[in-house]
Simulated assay, not measured.
Amino acid sequence: MTAAVTGISAITLATHDMARAVTFYETLGFALKYGGADSAFTSFYAGSGFLNLIATDPDPDPDRPIQWWGRAIFYVEDVDAFHAKAVAAGLTPEFDPQDAPWGERYFHIADPDGHDLSFAKPL
């Protein structure tokens, strides 16, 4: 296996109110894959990729924009090899690759501007 990027998997957006966000995306026609209104993490099908929602701390003003923009998730051929390549190049991922309950092996890393990136492969 090589450490090549093979596609984009998902975009993950933060929300102060998961129930409100889930209702919004279901109303738009997104089909639920994982999670739901009472979850800390929810995933919807979006063609061959996914739209994910992640709960942030509740805000007294739920209409205030989220300060964290979200996370782009890229598929790679081999998550562990991609992680090792990043570490060997002197980069600092947030954690070692791990298996997620939603069916992916993944790790996160921030780019120099603080944008969150995730590199994953379906299990």
Rank of each mutant, 00 (worst) to 15 (best):
A19I: 07
D61L: 03
D96V: 03
I66F: 03
G36V: 06
F30Y: 15
A14W: 07
A21E: 00
T6H: 08
F107W: 07
I8P: 04
I73W: 07
K33D: 15
Y34L: 05
F95A: 10
L123T: 13
G70P: 05
K85I: 01
D57N: 12
G49I: 04
A14D: 14
G103K: 05
F24D: 08
D116S: 10
D38I: 01
D113L: 09
H115Q: 09
G70T: 11
I66L: 06
A88F: 04
F119I: 14
G49F: 02
F119A: 05
D63Y: 09
K85V: 04
T15E: 07
F44I: 08
I11W: 01
F50T: 15
P122N: 15
G49Q: 02
R64C: 10
L117C: 09
T15D: 03
T15W: 07
K33Y: 12
P62D: 01
D78C: 03
E26Q: 11
D17A: 00
I54W: 10
L117P: 04
F82C: 08
A19H: 01
A88G: 12
W69L: 12
F24M: 00
K121T: 10
S43F: 08
H108N: 14
I11E: 00
L91A: 06
A72L: 12
T12R: 05
D111V: 02
A81W: 02
